[in-house]
């Protein structure tokens, strides 16, 4: 049997879809981002509605224990599932509490608000993600977005790192452009040396410094462009005696994939 369809020949639907895309883009421009607002708020609502459920199911061990549950008595199996779900929800709440506690320390140093991350951090091709706060909450274009590194000193905000800036603001949702988005560049200072960091996505960046600059792993990387806040730490230094420059790889010591809350410094 021929597995290919007889070609209709007209391409009318593709032309109509292309025209619809152009109309929607123009409508978005004319309305000042109205179409984008609707899309992002819808995506944020979906993420809030289903994100917690998926996390709880994934961490509950239900699927991994499926083989064991098939052998056990049905009553004991149902009871075990219930205890696993309760423990998983408690773990999720504990993780949220830990993040919020660390962000509370940031609030002492700078005025701002805590905002939930309402989208995936890995899905954007542009190095952006969405937060559940917007102009109605005091978020402004260019506001700095911080996160607290895990295990930091509870008495100060020294473990706060800039992870992005607000690039687009809607009433209840904002888009944050990561500091180390692919292709981005920012000025930074590493161990007193001024460098230009080039972002490679996922909270990673690299720079080239003169080989005689004394840079070691763990050195803080500060950015004068971003209020002097830390933007990362040195992860790896690649140096060769045959080259005049050394490659320094910087990363944000925050697991962006598990980020649930961020702190937005409002102006």
């Amino acid at each position: 049997m021929n597995s290919y369809r007889r070609h209709s020949g007209s391409g009318r639907k593709v032309r109509a879809a292309t025209a619809l895309v152009v109309v929607l883009v123009l409508l978005d421009i004319v309305t000042g981002g109205g179409v984008r607002t609707a899309a992002r708020e819808g995506a944020a609502a979906l993420s809030r509605a289903f994100g917690g459920t998926f996390s709880a199911l994934a961490s509950s061990g239900i699927f991994s224990s499926r083989a064991a549950l098939q052998i056990q008595n049905q009553e004991l199996a149902a009871e075990l599932q219930q205890y696993q779900l309760r423990a998983a929800f408690a773990s999720v709440l504990q993780a949220e509490n830990d993040q919020l506690s660390s962000l509370a320390r940031l609030a002492k140093a700078s005025p701002g608000i805590t905002a939930p991350v309402v989208s995936s951090v890995i899905s954007s091709p542009y190095g952006t993600f969405l937060i559940g706060a917007g102009s109605a909450d005091g978020v402004a274009l260019g506001s700095l977005v911080l996160a607290s590194a895990a295990g930091g000193d509870a008495s100060s905000a020294a473990n706060a790192f800039i992870i992005g800036r607000v690039a687009s603001v809607q009433p209840r949702v904002s888009a944050v452009a990561e500091v180390f988005a692919p292709g981005s560049s920012i000025n930074a200072i590493i161990h007193g040396a001024s460098v230009v960091l080039t972002g490679s996505g996922g909270g990673n960046a690299y720079a080239s410094l003169p080989r005689d600059a004394m840079v070691i792993g763990g050195d803080a990387v500060l950015s004068p462009d971003l209020g002097g806040y830390a933007v990362g730490t040195v992860g790896h230094v690649a140096s060769s005696s045959a080259q005049a420059l050394q490659d320094v790889y910087v990363s944000v010591p925050v697991n962006l994939g598990s980020l649930q809350y961020v702190y937005v410094v409002t102006r």
Binding site: A43, S123, S168
Partner: peptide, 12 residues
């Protein structure tokens, strides 16, 4: 394609 850009495009 438009859906992806509406979600993730940093600025207008």
């Amino acid at each position: 394609g438009l859906w992806v850009d509406l979600l993730w495009l940093p600025t207008p």
